[in-house]
Design a protein around this nucleic acid. Structure first.
Lengths: 209, 209
DNA sequence: CGAAAAAGTTGAACTAGTTCAAAAAAGAAA
DNA sequence: TTTCTTTTTTGAACTAGTTCAACTTTTTCG
């Protein structure tokens, strides 16, 4: 009786996980049940405890991941040894070092869980096989990569032309859910400014209202 | 006799043009003769005189282009009305506003020829048709977009973490051919600094050797 | 719970990069 | 060639953002 309930709850959790993935995919294109099943088959589930790493600089990034729970950061160390956050990923986001993953070269990036997290992972050879066997996957990742690229291009425009204040406001407007879960240190590192300066910006903005 | 030579020279020019495109594609994947022919069929040739525009802010970007001659810049106007160059494109580079092109929304970007230039263009509906009719095209653009994305991510890392000196050195090392053809104003705008400051950086670097 | 660690605040001194203005040099056009 | 326009250089005054150090507040965890 007890173990039966346990099994049912595990199964319903798995179902919810893959539902999230399906919803994510259907933002980009329609997919049939059978294609979706073939698509998800090679994914495996992994938990990463807070402060644990999914990838460390120097390793080759063997996976592409879809976050179903938690929050992770992707960062690298600059020449002065300072941590710089490239981006964050929470539920419903994809995560990988695309440079290392596609070129099979050692990563300069670290991926670390900021909260206890769960991801669905697929490795490179399995993804390559999906491209061959499920043509819609090729289209899916073409579209997804395009959208990621558009987003990065917009961020590039911000980084080049806007002041720290503007970038901070843009960030909290665009990702209000995310800011709540992050420390100011992390936000500052993402914006490319010192945390002291971010503190001053926040003070100034608080006064203004 | 005269018109015969003229025809032959036109034809050999066309052949060279598509050879360049083929070489470009084969950097990413192998393509059969027949697929390549079907791929190139919807492309058309266009000349853009120096200072002419291929795209103006406000228009919807209807094309994706491959540069076979010349040099173009992609730029936008920031809040202060200053021109900011996102990137350049010379022979063997692709050019479009991917945001406007894929989302069919008005562009914030301008694309202007810095030299008399020539491009091969394909419009959105034709490209969409290619995706359906020539499956390898889906893979081709998936790989191309991935690589562009990796390059942009690397640039993002530079923009966030490096000083103007470092970014300038990186630029001239990475694109020595390009720097020759650009004014310092243009390079400064690409690096996201004032041209006066670039001039000072160049002076400082010249002294050091 | 209490101690230790991490995050956030503040001010002062500094530095990288900007703005403005004026002059010199280089290119384009006629 | 001459003229006009654009690019480049230079200096001085300024500003956005950094660094360092000391302190307060919050979070973590044994």
């Amino acid at each position: 009786m007890f173990s039966g309930l346990w099994l049912i709850s595990i199964l319903s959790y798995l179902r919810a996980m893959f539902e999230l993935l399906r919803k994510n995919i259907e933002k980009h294109l329609a997919i049939s049940d059978s294609d979706f099943e073939r698509f998800t088959a090679p994914f495996y589930h992994r938990k990463i405890a807070k402060k644990q790493f999914l990838l460390r600089a120097g390793q080759i990034c063997k996976f592409e991941g879809f976050v179903i729970k938690g929050c992770l950061r992707v960062y690298y160390l600059d020449e002065q040894g300072q941590e710089r956050i490239l981006y964050f990923a929470i539920e419903d986001w994809w995560i990988t070092d695309i440079d290392s993953f596609t070129n099979n070269t050692p990563s300069i990036l670290n991926i670390e869980a900021l909260e206890d997290s769960e991801v669905l992972l697929i490795t490179q050879p399995y993804k390559e096989a999906l491209y061959e066997q499920v043509p819609v996957v090729e289209k899916l990742f073409r579209i997804m990569t395009q959208k990621t690229h558009v987003a990065l291009q917009r961020r590039m425009i911000s980084a080049l032309g806007k002041t720290a204040d503007e970038r901070y406001l843009e960030f909290i407007t665009k990702y209000p859910q995310l800011e709540q879960r992050l420390t100011q240190l992390q936000v500052a590192s993402y914006l490319g400014i010192s945390h002291e300066f971010l503190s001053k910006i926040r003070k100034k903005l608080a006064k203004q209202r």
